[in-house]
């Protein structure tokens, strides 16, 4: 996967670039908005990471110009903590996600993958199948090994979110944002309980566990065979 990372802080640029490369991404970098815009317009990138505060053109402006010429590359914004206005403004301009600094690298990686997948992960009939699990978004129906599982609406939303990102880690704050809205991110313990409840309904009595914990980050729904304990 090819990423363009536009960031004016050389130190941040250095370690994020290194982390991204070590995680298997191909990374180009730019130190200011104009260069970033030029590279983004010329090259075919899977995701753009844009810092909001950039010398010259700021991140918003780069995004606006890209979208105005029909460039729909997925964009993830980086901004100073808690700039509520920034988040809303960025999303209005057509950004795909938003991450406040300081962030955990694992969080950035998880969101990056989610953003990159956004355009290709729609299953045509709205039905997700992971091992013997079937999640039907249209009919709000879940079954495991042919047996129906009753879920609360929130549990269903959570499962559907995990299923849409099956095989990839979603962070606790991503779950909080998507299922409950902004403002709940700091209560990771509550999110753990929600996931555990879902896990009980889904995995209890099955040798093959599907919901797994990604230590220090979040959860992943995938089929890892039978000897995984989760």
């Amino acid at each position: 996967m090819k990423i363009l990372y536009v960031e004016d802080d050389p130190e941040a640029q250095a370690f994020v670039q290194r982390a991204l490369r070590e995680s298997g991404f191909v990374v180009d970098t730019a130190g200011d908005g104009a260069t970033g815009l030029e590279l983004a317009s010329a090259g075919a990138y899977d995701v753009l990471i844009l810092d909001v505060k950039l010398p010259g053109l700021d991140g918003f402006e780069v995004l606006r110009r890209l979208r105005s010429v029909g460039n729909e590359v997925p964009v993830l914004f980086l901004t100073a903590q808690g700039e509520v206005g920034h988040r809303i403004h960025g999303l209005e301009l057509g950004a795909d996600d938003y991450l406040a600094k300081p962030f955990a690298l694992a969080e950035l990686l998880a969101r990056l993958r989610a953003v990159a997948r956004r355009h290709q992960r729609q299953s045509p009939d709205g039905v997700h199948r992971i091992a013997d699990l079937v999640v039907d978004s249209e009919r709000h129906y879940v079954e495991r090994a042919g047996k129906r599982i009753a879920l609360t609406p929130k549990e269903f939303q959570l499962l559907e979110y995990l299923a849409r990102n099956a095989g990839y880690v979603v962070s606790r704050s991503m779950i909080a944002e998507k299922i409950w809205g902004h403002g709940f991110e700091s209560y990771s313990n509550a999110i753990d309980v929600h996931v555990n409840n879902l896990r009980r309904k889904l995995d209890r009595g099955h040798a093959r566990k599907l919901i797994h914990t990604a230590k220090g980050l979040g959860y992943v729904l995938e089929d890892r065979g039978e000897d995984e304990t989760g």
């Binding site: 206005g85 929130k154 929600h194």
Partner: peptide, 28 residues
């Protein structure tokens, strides 16, 4: 809060979500 960032927030659904969010943790 900057004026342009103010929006109408329906309090009922917000509080219902809140109860839903904390219910499992409390129950535990």
């Amino acid at each position: 809060i900057p004026r342009e960032r103010r929006e109408r927030v329906a309090l009922g659904p917000l509080l219902e979500t809140l109860v839903e969010f904390f219910e499992p943790l409390a129950e535990e």
